[in-house]
Each structure stands twice: as C-alpha cells, then as structure tokens.
Amino acid sequence: MASRIIKYVEKSSVIHKLDPRSKLILLFSVLASSTLAYSLAVALPILVFSFIIYFLAKLPWSATKNTWKFIVSIIVFLSTLNYLFVAVLFRHGGKPLSLETLLDSEILARTFTPIVKLLSLAVATVTFIYTTPPYLYAPALGQIGLNYKAAYVVQLGLRYFPEFIEEMKRTLEAQMARGYKPRGGGNIVARIAALAPLIVPVTVSASLSIYDIADAMELRGFGENKCHTWFRKLKFSKNDFLVFALSGIMITAYTILFIAKPI
C-alpha cells in the first residue's frame, strides 16, 4: 500500500541531489512567474524551463505514466472547454461563425495561454514530488525558517495518513461483515447519508485520540522551547546556489515584464 501511495522515485540525478529547500524555492519561482505571465510568448519559456528540470531528473516512464495520463486528460478537457467558450459561445463582436474566425490567432492565444501556464506548473510540481523523499518535507520546511510547530503539522499529517487509510479499510470490512452496503436507493441525500457508517467511526475515534497524542507529546517537552533542531540536517551544495540565482533572475525578469509589458 505504502509503496503505491508514495510517489518518490529513488535516483541520483542532479535534481535528486538538490537540497529540498532550494527545490521549494524553485517551485515557488515557477509558480510566481507563471502567475505573472500575461501572454503566450511570455508563458512558453516557463514551460520549456519546467520541462528541462523534468528531463534533468531522468524519471522512469513506468513510474510517471499514471500522472501523465491524468495531466493529459485535464489538458485536453480544458483546451476543448476553453476553445468552445472563447471561439463559439462567447466570442467578441458577434462575428459570424466561419473557419477564419475559428482559427484566429487572438482566439488561439486566449485559449492556450492558460493551458501553457497550467502545464508548466504541473510539470514543475510533478518533478518536485517525484524527486523529494516525503521524510524530508517537514525538516526542509523547518530549516527554511518556518516555525517548527507548523513543520510538525506536516510531519504529523504524513505520519498518520497511511494509518487512517488502513483504518478506513478495516472499518469498511467490519461494516460489510455486518451487512453494510454503500448504497441508499436513488435518493441523493440517502446515498450520502449511507456513507456515515464508514466516515463516523474513523473520524470520531481519530478526533478522540487527538488529546492522547497531544499529552504524549507534551510529556516529552513539545512546545516548551522556542527552537527545535532537526535530526536530518540539510546542507546546501554548489548547485543549490545556482538554483537560487536562477530563481531570483526568473522572478525579477517576470516582474519587470509584467510591469513593462513590452510584447
């Protein structure tokens, strides 16, 4: 189960060797610059950049296949939807529908700019998730300067996530042994209410256990001190500083482009 859920792929590429903190900063700079990109010509370099990072990571196709299926289906769906809305349903000026208006460059740009932005973000985040082991998320957030309590929330979330999945499965099997069937006739309200025997036991037992976990943590001194050290100490290498420089250049360039709008 756990191996199917966790997306991290063990490799030793340049991207894998980067510090998780610098990958977070890189992700943020792609996010910021694609948010600032206002036209197709400005958005395309980000897409190229994301793909360069993706291919540098040398991820095997077998591991990323399902993710790509999902991304491609979303892209195809949204492109058709955009095209339909921009070119057919809500076009400007009430021009008659003809082949010429359908292939107008302005319409195509309006349809595909958001898609390019979406795709570049998706490629960058997929690279981050496939190249960063989950046990480094909380230490990276903690050592980037975030309060350790906030980083610990991430740690706790990742710690209890597989356990609750198992708990859900056990509860489903136990309820099915008692004759439970997740169905409730044709009525929507009844169908949703029929999920209660599955959701209620897991949620209530989890929320009652919160106080016990908090007590156990407080007994070990959690929250007493203002600072907190991490077992996994992260160190920047030469490549990380290169990444900082790249991210800085990217954000500045896109901010200037956004303000000046030369194209």
């Binding site: 309590k149 991430v154 929320s207 919160i210 407080e218 959690f222």
Partner: peptide, 16 residues
C-alpha cells in the same frame, strides 16, 4: 500542542 495535533490529524484524515 492540542491544536498542532488536531491540525495534523485533520490533515491526515482529509487526505486519507
């Protein structure tokens, strides 16, 4: 601390 744990457990439950 209870708040921190509640956030962690809520996160894990919602994700699960």
């Amino acid at each position: 601390t209870t708040g921190v744990v509640a956030m962690g457990v809520g996160t894990a439950l919602y994700a699960a």
